[in-house]
Every structure is written in structure tokens, then in C-alpha cells.
Design a protein around this nucleic acid. Structure first.
Length: 443
RNA sequence: GUGGGCGUAGCUCAGUUCGGUAGAGCACCGGGUUGUGGCCCCGGUGGCCGCGGGUUCAAGUCCCGUCGCCCACCCCA
């Protein structure tokens, strides 16, 4: 005998077993339903893109994480998609003639990033994106943010905060501080950490990045602005009064806040966090991400406006705005917080039909068939074994109803139905099984 | 890319101090109860002790190497 292979999957990737798959599907169903309620259309793009489509869009840090692929006989340089936005931009450019604008689409699909895995971070994971292409109206930005709020609320999240910022404001802050363009990256990275490491350490980092001390003290004043969303914007606009782009960014945020108020999104779940940056290069307007209090994990949504990205694939760009939901993190959080309804069980099977012996096989088969015809997910026990072990099997697997057809029932053309949730038991004709089971399990 | 922790049964882990026949709980199979699950009792199956090398009469245990997983940072969903 040759030695067996180690059964393994690539790092950062995982199998999803039925129990988890069922919970996952529940969440994904909810999410798609809400996307469609808001008028987003489904769509699909390939897992692979041409490497040239993806490269140069995300920024150097992200670009290192793109999986590139080759095939011995192939001439095309391929890459696995890193997100769903850049493929969307490519699709818009290719199919703009067949689409109606503003075009709203959602996509729930895996993406791949060669990161070092850890809690809430995988190398293959699903993103749920919704985007609106073809309008600069801030109503679209507001609608996306409203959708984030509606979706998370509908799933049962309560303690979450949507952090808002604008790339325009960030650019304004950059100019305000007088940091040279080539140091803006490290400036953003440092101020982004304000929440985590505090003012002192941020100033320390800025000094280490060779940023002049007068600039640091100007920034310090700016970064200390705190309070509710509106007063933050008021004070920030005074500081950035000389910068037209910065003023524009603030005006954008004010307008969106106004819409969100009208839409009933509570202020207390919104936060103007003008130190929030977001890594991807292509954002150029309002940006946002969502954090939850517990369990502790990185942001569960992230998105923003990217009016120039599509322009990389066609002559005149089309403005676009959208967000991504981290479905993996959302599912992890919901599992940890026990947020899934009881109706989401560990198995799709609703009824187990027992098997007694060769004489009853035909009638057991017939009963299973009848239940399936009636739309009840039914499993037939295949092995002739003690009733006890068949019951045990149903119990362990979480099947709520057992249909017993032994010699007694077979003779009378009846079945004994047992409800495992309540331990009720009734004997009735085969034709009445489906309605009885439906009464027991609901639906 | 940086730092830390851990690899022993299908799963969670003890055993490593001080080298001496491979353990527990859960799961699985059978029985107690030959037509009734969960609880209980009894029995059983199951191990390349991550992998390779070294030291030794003897290595899960000591030494070297290597691979893998987890956690944190960076960054992100």
C-alpha cells in the first residue's frame, strides 16, 4: 500500500459543511432579498479576469495580494478577481449599450486575496456588493448608506456604527497640513490609527515619517475635533475654509446626512470619522465602513464613491457608488451572538421514513415518494436496523419528524408520525401525512 | 512582511517537568430495552503522538531541521 496523501486545503481557504452552509444560505437569501427590494439587479462575472484588467487599480499594498494564474497552453495572463468593483467597471465599459442608467446591480460571489489569514480574514471569501452606476447624485450615496442600515437592522444587528468620511476632505486635510504629496500615504496611515493608538502615538509616528513639527501641531488641533456628526462638520469646515475641495467634501457629507435623516437612519448610528481612509486607491468621494461593538472584529462593510474608475476602461467615465458587505464576518458574528432564528436548522431534512424489513420496503418507499411530492424534504432510512437506531439517527441529525411504517401500519395502510420536538405521536392514513407534518413544522 | 502560541484518536485535549507497553471526554458501533430519540449504565472500534533526521538499550517526551494551523500587528470584508 502506498502512503496516503494528507487531505488538506490551501491556506486561508475552507470547506463549508452542510450545517454551516444552511446558515450561510439563510443570510445570503436575506441579503439578496433586501438588495432586490431596493431595486438592485443580479449579475455575474467570471472568477478570472485578464491580469491587465485588475493590475494597477487597487494600490501597491493590495496589488501584492492578487493571485495570478497561468495555464501551460494559454497565452493570456489571468488573475483571480480581488474584489467585485473593478470587474464591474470592466463590465460596464463592455456592455454599456445594453444597460439602462442609472444601473443598479448586486453580486454575491467569492473573491481571492493572498493575505495572511486570521480571525475574520480568509484568502477566499464571499463579498456581497451593491453599486449604483451612472449618477453623481448624492441621493445614491444616501441610498447605499440607508441600505447598509436597513440590511444590518433586518439581520438583527443593533450595536453597529457607520463611519463616514470623504476622500475630498482627506485631500483637503492633506493640503491643510502642508504635507508633500509623496508623504500623504504615511500621513493617512498614521491618522487612521488615531482610534487605536491615541494622539500621542500618532504624533510620534508622524515625527518618524519626517513630517515637520509645525504641521503636526496644526494636524493635532484638527484631529481633536469630536462630537456629534453635525458639530464635527461645522468645526471642520471652519478649519478647511480655504480649501475648495475640502469644503466640497464637507458639503457632500452634510447633504447626505440630511437625506439620511429624512430616511430615518438615526444619527447615533452614524459617525463622521475624518481620519478613516480606506485602502483602495479608486475611491474619490464619500467613503464609509461599518463596525460592530461585539464580537470584536474588523469592519463588516466598506465602500464609497468611485467616479473615475470606470474611466480606466472607457473614454468618458461613469460615476459610481457602492458598498461591499463582508458576508463571512457577518455570518461569524451572527453565529457568535446567536442571532439566527430557530427555523434555521442543521439539516434540510424534515421527515425521516423508517425501514423495517423487506416486506415493508415498498410501502416505505411509497410514503417517502408521497411526502416528496408534497414538497416535504424527506429522507428514507436505507439500512434495515433497529427502530431505536433509526430514531437515534433522526435525533442526532436534527430531523424533526419520523414516519414509522412497520408491519402493523403496512397492514392498515397507515403510518405512525412522531414529532421529535414535542414527542407527540399520531397514526393516520398515508395521504394525511403531509398536512400533519406541515402543521408540526410550520410552513 | 513582523511578532507570539500550538501540532497526540473524527473533535476538544491530558500525558512532555524527571525518556521505560498510548490516555480521557465527546462522537461512532453494539448491548441494557428484538416497535420508539434525547438522560443513564455496560462493552467495543478507532492512533505514521504533523513530517524528516539525530542522541539513546529505549523517544510522544531530549536535540536539530522542516511543514502546517491559530492569534496579534500591517492591511482589509
Amino acid at each position: 500500500m502506498s502512503r496516503q496523501l494528507q487531505a488538506r486545503v490551501p491556506r486561508g481557504m475552507r470547506d463549508i459543511l452542510p450545517e454551516r452552509m444552511i446558515r450561510r444560505r439563510y443570510v445570503i437569501d436575506q441579503v439578496s432579498r433586501i438588495f432586490e427590494e431596493f431595486g438592485f439587479e443580479p449579475l455575474q462575472t467570471p472568477s478570472f479576469e485578464l491580469a491587465e484588467t485588475l493590475l494597477g487599480k487597487y494600490g501597491p499594498d493590495a496589488e501584492k495580494l492578487i493571485y495570478q494564474a497561468q495555464h501551460a497552453g494559454g497565452k493570456e495572463e489571468l488573475a483571480l478577481r480581488y474584489d467585485l468593483s473593478v470587474p464591474l467597471a470592466r463590465l460596464i465599459a463592455m456592455h454599456r449599450g445594453q444597460l439602462h442608467f442609472p444601473f443598479k446591480r448586486y453580486q454575491i460571489a467569492p473573491v481571492w486575496r493572498a493575505e495572511r489569514p486570521q480571525r475574520g480574514r480568509y484568502r477566499e471569501f464571499y463579498q456581497c456588493d451593491c453599486d449604483i452606476v451612472g449618477t453623481t447624485s448624492l441621493l445614491a450615496d444616501a441610498e447605499i448608506i440607508q441600505l447598509i442600515h436597513a440590511l444590518l437592522s433586518r439581520l438583527g444587528f443593533k450595536d453597529f456604527t457607520i463611519h463616514l468620511n470623504s476622500r475630498k476632505v482627506l485631500n483637503g486635510i492633506g493640503r491643510y497640513s502642508g504635507v508633500p504629496a509623496d508623504q500623504l500615504g504615511s500621513l493617512y496611515r498614521s491618522i487612521d490609527k488615531l482610534d487605536k493608538i491615541g494622539m500621542e502615538r500618532v504624533q510620534e509616528e508622524l515625527r518618524e515619517s519626517q513630517i515637520p513639527s509645525e504641521v503636526i501641531s496644526r494636524l493635532a488641533g484638527l484631529l481633536q475635533i469630536e462630537g456629534d456628526v453635525r458639530s464635527v462638520l461645522g468645526r471642520l469646515s471652519k478649519e478647511l475654509a480655504q480649501d475648495s475641495e475640502g469644503r466640497q467634501g464637507i458639503a457632500d457629507l452634510e447633504e447626505v446626512l440630511c437625506y439620511l435623516k429624512a430616511l430615518g437612519v438615526p444619527d447615533k448610528q452614524l459617525d463622521i470619522q475624518f481620519t478613516m481612509v480606506r485602502g483602495l486607491d479608486y475611491y474619490d468621494g464619500i467613503i464609509y465602513e461599518t463596525s460592530i461593538e461585539k464580537p470584536k472584529m474588523p469592519s463588516i462593510t466598506g465602500g464609497g464613491r468611485y467616479d473615475q474608475l470606470i474611466g480606466l476602461f472607457m473614454k468618458d467615465s461613469l460615476p459610481a457608488v457602492g458598498t461591499s458587505f463582508g458576508i463571512e464576518r457577518i455570518i461569524d458574528a451572527m453565529e457568535e451572538l446567536n442571532m439566527l432564528p430557530d427555523s434555521v436548522r442543521g439539516t434540510v431534512v424534515r421527515a425521516l421514513v423508517t425501514l423495517f424489513g423487506p416486506d415493508q420496503a415498498a410501502i416505505s418507499l411509497q410514503a417517502a415518494h408521497q411526502l416528496r411530492q408534497a414538497g416535504i424534504h424527506t429522507e428514507l432510512y436505507f439500512k434495515q436496523s433497529s427502530l431505536k437506531s433509526q430514531f437515534k439517527y433522526a435525533n442526532r441529525k436534527g430531523i424533526p419528524c419520523v414516519v414509522v411504517i412497520g408491519p402493523d401500519e403496512a397492514e392498515q395502510g397507515k403510518a405512525t408520525l412522531r414529532n421529535f420536538m414535542t414527542s407527540q405521536q399520531v397514526q393516520l392514513p398515508l395521504s394525511e401525512m403531509p398536512s400533519q407534518i406541515r402543521r408540526w413544522i410550520g410552513n
